[in-house]
Design a protein around this nucleic acid. Structure first.
Length: 508
RNA sequence: GGUCCGUUCGUCUAUCGGUUAGGACACCAGAUUUUCAUUCUGGGAAGACGAGUUCGACUCUCGUACGGACUACCA
């Protein structure tokens, strides 16, 4: 079975994380079943077009490893162009086809006239432009052929509306929600072609899905209420047999459970809701991305995949290959899933721990150099091994582990004052000298030797080990003292001890 | 308001008529690490409510409540 799916975002700004999940599910399904995945850009609203948004979408998909088989940014295929603005003429022809078959009509009402109609009907349950109101409006159904012709020739703006039939039950067979039924008496006469000659989503989407032979439409739940219209349009064109299967995905909700996750929530709750950072025209419209926060794309994908879908097993960590292997639309949940940032962080930590030290070192290297640290990849590799289970974000390696590359910048004075006894200074000087007898290549033997030394020194373990840690790292947190020492080497360790003991005395 | 969708631990979820309702995140306690983290062990924590169907309902049906989406010449 070869399927054809599409991800069709609008270039109106940064692609929100829910959009990434929609793209992911499309990708996973096509990867599992085999077929074609098209990236189509739905830029029919010229007023909302944002420069850079298209590039953002492409970069996001690449970063996430969600690669369409064809489409904008990924090479043209059989059914190009894939940018709707470049297909304008096509939609006009199809809209006219609907006019000719009596399934659509011209409407000349001004926004003010429509507003007046709504005002008039504000106490009614249905105040839309629909079969109950179309008879009292200014359109080709109420005007004579001659009047319509005159209006059009005089340049009066008009739209083309779908003529929804009366009292018919339209049923959508949704892969996630089973059957959803609408009665046409409740559906409005949607605008198909706008006054500027551009199609609305409803027209463009169906024409393109039909022409591109799309077999499965996987999209957000916000489209479910208009799915009835979409079925009607397929029928109006006589394309019922080619109508794709629908799968309406549950929404990603705010953590506090009040509605769907929106772009503002990132700032409100303190986590990213966009894959990549976005620099909008204003501060308000600029956002930090998962990537810039230090997330591994594999963690983002894994987290997103499990937000509304599960494999039916207790496995939590999945590679993209495993996901596509196990993926199925039937296992997608019906209800919205709340965004859980803690879980996202947990996934990231898991992926950092899973990454081989050498790979981490490879990524850390340029960043270290940029920070002016004089290091080798070998050193970074050992460092990564020591630090990787202590960080959640990639960025934290060099922040939390800065003392691996430079002398301690900030000591934990509080802990030092609490633990340092100046009268023990001579003993610590002895210990410092004792370090020169140790085998720095073997942390374990160092530990044994030092503990042995402590037991004969008259000091307690708890008096010595924490001070060594504080001297080497400045903080009470971090890898094992002897792992650090081994990496630092004898000279560096003695340097740090000397510096630190003076400092300890000075603040005690 | 109307239409449509939904409802299992705080959160993400398993269960597809018979289970001590399982797992994960988060939280708490303990062990390990004389740090932190990791890891391991343990703990608290759930079927919105009401009817019905059935020998038996978290699971099927209906109603109620609550939540959500949509209701633009935006997608």
């Amino acid at each position: 079975m070869s399927i054809r799916v599409r991800f069709a975002p609008s270039p109106t700004g940064a692609l929100h994380i829910g959009g990434v999940r929609t793209a992911l599910y499309n990708y996973l399904l096509v990867k599992k079943l085999g077929g074609t995945f098209i990236l189509r850009i739905e830029d029919t609203d010229q007023t909302r077009f944002v420069p850079g948004a298209e590039e953002y979408i492409i970069e996001t998909l690449k970063w996430c490893g969600i690669e369409p088989t064809e489409g904008i940014g990924f090479g043209d295929g059989e059914y190009a162009p894939y940018r709707q603005s470049e297909r304008k003429k096509l939609y006009q022809d199809y809209a006219n086809q609907l006019i000719n078959s009596g399934n659509a009509y011209y409407a000349f009402d001004t926004p003010a006239e429509i507003e007046a109609m709504r005002e008039r009907l504000k106490n009614e349950s249905n105040q839309s432009y629909s079969l109950t109101t179309r008879g009292s409006m200014k359109n080709s159904l109420t005007l004579s052929e001659k009047e319509v012709k005159e209006l059009m020739e005089s340049g009066v703006p008009y739209v083309i509306r779908l003529k929804v039939p009366e009292n018919v039950d339209v049923t959508i067979d949704d892969l996630i929600r089973n059957t959803v039924t609408f009665n046409t008496n409740e559906l409005d006469d949607k605008v198909l072609l706008k006054a500027d000659g551009m199609p609305t989503y409803h027209l463009a989407n169906i024409v393109d899905d039909y022409l591109m032979k799309i077999t499965h439409v996987i999209r957000g739940e916000e489209w479910l209420p208009s799915a009835g219209h979409h079925a009607l349009i397929y029928k109006a064109f006589g394309w019922e047999s080619a109508m794709p299967r629908f799968a309406h995905l549950p929404l990603i909700l705010k953590p506090d459970g009040k509605g769907k996750l929106s772009k503002r929530d990132g700032k409100k709750f303190g986590f990213p809701v966009f894959p990549l950072s976005w620099n909008g025209e204003t501060e308000e419209d600029s956002f930090v991305g998962f990537r810039e926060m230090g997330f591994d794309p594999r963690a983002v994908i894994n987290f997103l995949a499990l937000l509304g879908w599960n494999s039916g097993t207790e496995q939590e960590i999945f590679s993209m290959d495993e996901l596509s292997e196990k993926f199925s639309l039937e296992k997608i949940n019906k209800s919205g899933a709340r965004f859980d940032y803690d879980k996202a962080k947990w996934f990231n930590q898991q992926y950092i721990m899973l990454t081989p030290n050498e790979d981490l070192a490879e990524q850390l290297y340029p960043l270290s150099i940029a920070k002016g640290f004089d290091v080798t990849k070998e050193y970074l590799s050992i460092f990564a091994g020591l630090m990787k289970e202590r960080v959640v974000f990639f960025n934290e390696f060099l922040e939390k582990g800065a003392y691996f590359f430079q002398k301690v910048q900030a000591f934990d004075d509080e802990n030092i004052k609490k633990r340092w006894k100046s009268e023990n200074r001579p003993k610590f000087e002895e210990l410092k000298t004792f370090f020169s007898t140790l085998n720095f290549a073997d942390p374990l033997s160092m530990e044994h030797a030092v503990k042995e030394w402590i037991s004969t020194s008259g000091l307690k373990m708890g008096e010595v080990l924490p001070m060594l840690r504080l001297a080497l790292a400045g903080t009470m947190q971090g890898p094992a003292v002897f792992d650090m020492s081994s990496l630092f080497g004898l000279d560096e360790v003695q340097d740090r001890l000397a510096l630190a003991f003076d400092y300890f005395d000075s603040i005690s």
